[in-house]
Computed example of a mutant assay.
Amino acid sequence: MNWDQVEGNWKDLKGSIREKWAKLTDDDMELVAGKKDRIVGKLQERYGFAKDRAEAELDQYIASMDKDRRSSMS
Rank of each mutant, 00 (worst) to 15 (best):
residue 4 D to E: 14
residue 73 M to T: 07
residue 7 E to Q: 11
residue 52 D to P: 06
residue 74 S to K: 12
residue 43 L to I: 05
residue 70 R to K: 11
residue 64 S to D: 04
residue 34 G to Q: 03
residue 10 W to P: 08
residue 29 M to E: 05
residue 5 Q to L: 12
residue 16 S to Y: 12
residue 57 E to K: 08
residue 66 D to L: 12
residue 29 M to V: 12
residue 32 V to I: 13
residue 19 E to C: 12
residue 56 A to F: 08
residue 4 D to T: 14
residue 54 A to Q: 01
residue 6 V to T: 05
residue 50 A to N: 15
residue 72 S to C: 13
residue 15 G to N: 06
residue 60 Q to C: 14
residue 39 I to G: 04
residue 69 R to W: 13
residue 13 L to H: 03
residue 8 G to V: 09
residue 74 S to R: 05
residue 55 E to A: 05
residue 15 G to C: 07
residue 2 N to D: 14
residue 55 E to W: 08
residue 31 L to H: 06
residue 44 Q to Y: 05
residue 56 A to N: 13
residue 63 A to K: 00
residue 71 S to M: 13
residue 16 S to L: 04
residue 12 D to M: 09
residue 51 K to T: 00
residue 13 L to Y: 11
residue 19 E to S: 13
residue 63 A to M: 03
residue 61 Y to P: 09
residue 31 L to F: 08
residue 73 M to E: 00
residue 9 N to P: 03
residue 37 D to Y: 06
residue 27 D to C: 04
residue 17 I to T: 14
residue 32 V to D: 10
residue 43 L to K: 04
residue 64 S to I: 04
residue 47 Y to K: 13
residue 60 Q to I: 15
residue 52 D to Y: 08
residue 34 G to C: 10
residue 1 M to W: 07
residue 18 R to T: 05
residue 21 W to D: 02
residue 56 A to I: 04
residue 9 N to D: 01
residue 40 V to K: 10
residue 45 E to T: 03
residue 64 S to N: 10
residue 7 E to W: 04
residue 24 L to D: 02
residue 5 Q to G: 13
residue 14 K to D: 02
residue 63 A to Y: 03
residue 18 R to A: 05
residue 22 A to M: 06
residue 58 L to Q: 13
residue 28 D to E: 06
residue 16 S to Q: 08
residue 6 V to Q: 02
residue 7 E to R: 12
residue 39 I to T: 03
residue 42 K to V: 04
residue 44 Q to K: 14
residue 57 E to T: 01
residue 50 A to R: 12
residue 38 R to G: 00
